[in-house]
Simulated scan of single mutants.
Amino acid sequence: MAKVYFIGAGPGDPELLTLKGKRIIDSSDVIIYAGSLVNAAILEGCKEDAKIYNSASMNLDEVLEVTVNAINEGKDVARVHTGDPSIYGAIREQIDPLEEKGVECEVIPGVSSFTASAAAMKKEFTLPNVSQTVICTRMEGRTPVPEEESLEKLASHKASMAIFLSVGMINKVIEKLTIHYPVTTPVAVVQRATWPDQKIVLGTLENIAEKVADENITKQAQILVGNFLGDEYELSKLYDKSFTHMFREGK
């Protein structure tokens, strides 16, 4: 029976596509990919007769029409999203109507831009005695944010934070964050993580907006905030030689 696979293509580097995602893209009869964000190199190796659609110029009804028509013809569909489809992937609005029609769907996770951005800097969101929580969020724009999830309320936790889809409003972001974070809090803005033209801008809440403006970064960037970007932290218990766990006796 034909099936629709929602595949996370990762942040940009085609080698960060999972083995399963690559296998399904290469074997699918129809591929619909988010061409405005997904690296087209992930299509290399697909079937010569595969029908390929760039969803950047399609609306939801058009995507669903292509998908349902393919399924009715017994063809597998690879619906390829950027990053991980479960984070700002707009997949529910596709999966729900498809499943109502009896179409089988499967989601294949991918590397998210927020983890790719941390990896690009060799940083860890969850440092002992610094932060054990990561908040993934966005500024309110044309898509609203629930009032209880406003940026200033989330900032009150002073946890590690990854802010999506908001670099074009960075001055407003900083205004809301500094209600709770000290202005000396480190910030990183990572544009197009893992792409050949990746750009990393480092600063603090006090100066990052100016630095981002100087670099002309207005889209496709993560804003990472928190003391996890600094250099002060405790060692983990996991590898502490005095710490005993089920696989090792402490000394």
Rank of each mutant, 00 (worst) to 15 (best):
M1C: 06
A2G: 03
I7L: 03
G12K: 05
D13K: 02
L17D: 04
R23W: 02
I24R: 02
G35M: 07
S36H: 01
S36M: 03
N39S: 14
A40M: 09
A40N: 11
A41N: 13
C46S: 10
K47C: 02
E48F: 03
D49R: 08
A50S: 14
N54S: 12
N54Q: 07
D61L: 12
E62N: 01
N69V: 04
N69G: 07
H81G: 07
I87P: 11
E93W: 14
K101S: 07
E104F: 05
F114K: 07
A118C: 08
A118E: 06
A119P: 06
F125C: 11
L127K: 11
P128M: 09
V130D: 11
S131V: 04
S131M: 03
Q132N: 15
C136H: 01
T137F: 06
R138W: 10
T143E: 09
P144I: 06
P144V: 05
E148K: 13
S150R: 15
L151H: 08
H157S: 10
A159K: 11
L165P: 04
M169G: 06
I170Y: 04
K172G: 08
K176I: 00
I179V: 15
V190S: 06
R192T: 03
W195L: 00
Q198I: 01
K199H: 07
G203E: 11
I208F: 10
A213H: 14
D214K: 15
T218D: 11
T218L: 10
Q220I: 04
A221I: 06
N227K: 13
F228L: 10
F228H: 08
L235M: 13
K241P: 12
S242R: 13
F243P: 04
H245Y: 15
E249F: 03
K251R: 11
